[in-house]
Amino acid sequence: MAELSAFNFRPGSSVLHGLDVRFKLLFLVLISVTSLKAYPVSLSVLTLVLVAALLHAQRSLKSIFKAFRYLIVLLAFIFFARALSVPGSAVIEFKAVSITREGIYHGAMVCWRLVIVVLTGLAFVSTTRPSEIKAAVEWLLNPFPFIPSKRIATMMSLVVRFIPVIFDQARETADAQRARGVDNRKNPVYRLQKLGIPLMRRTFERADKLAVAMEARCYSENRTDPGLRAGLRDWTALFVVICLCMFIVV
């Protein structure tokens, strides 16, 4: 059984779970775009709001931190790249390299904004069912002619479905190889080859089984999707988010 990754849907009954997907998608775009214009005061407000929303959606602080595990290296890299490259009054100087105050401020701002974007994404993905995402994508692509919106929406929800399957399969294959003593082989090329090719084969075979199963259940592109309904609550939420964004930009 696959361990739930940080970016999986968790059922719940919070306000975020109840909102219309299209509105949530719009909020996602709005908040990501406005965060690019935000400065320390408004960024702190935004962070507090997002963390409160995540806690309300029954996510523990621990699982939020876990989501940032992989991101920390990237953030550190961006921070130092900025700190070293922006000219200004130097704080630390070492030979030709100097870390400037402006650089530190700049780097911190950029990293903070990235954190905001990831928090927003986390709030969206963990409160929205893949089938709802599919319905929203379909609704979004429907007005465009010549785009097979049904098929694209199906593919999108398959992508969301496959990601945990891949990690699950990778762990299974690695376990199987460890049981056969692959640790005794020091050659990294040999080990990658013996891990990579079976892993790819297995995931493709699983995909094949899924396609056969869909076929056996008479999959077709004409099917009923979960209904999208926008109520008073969604419009109120939209109003609140727009106010928040105005506050940030001004």
Partner: peptide, 20 residues
């Protein structure tokens, strides 16, 4: 589909950072 998923804000790009 991969790029569209990323543009919509699903965490699929390098470092898990997504968004349009």
């Amino acid at each position: 589909v991969y790029l569209l998923a990323g543009a919509l804000g699903l965490p699929v790009f390098a470092g898990g950072v997504a968004g349009i």
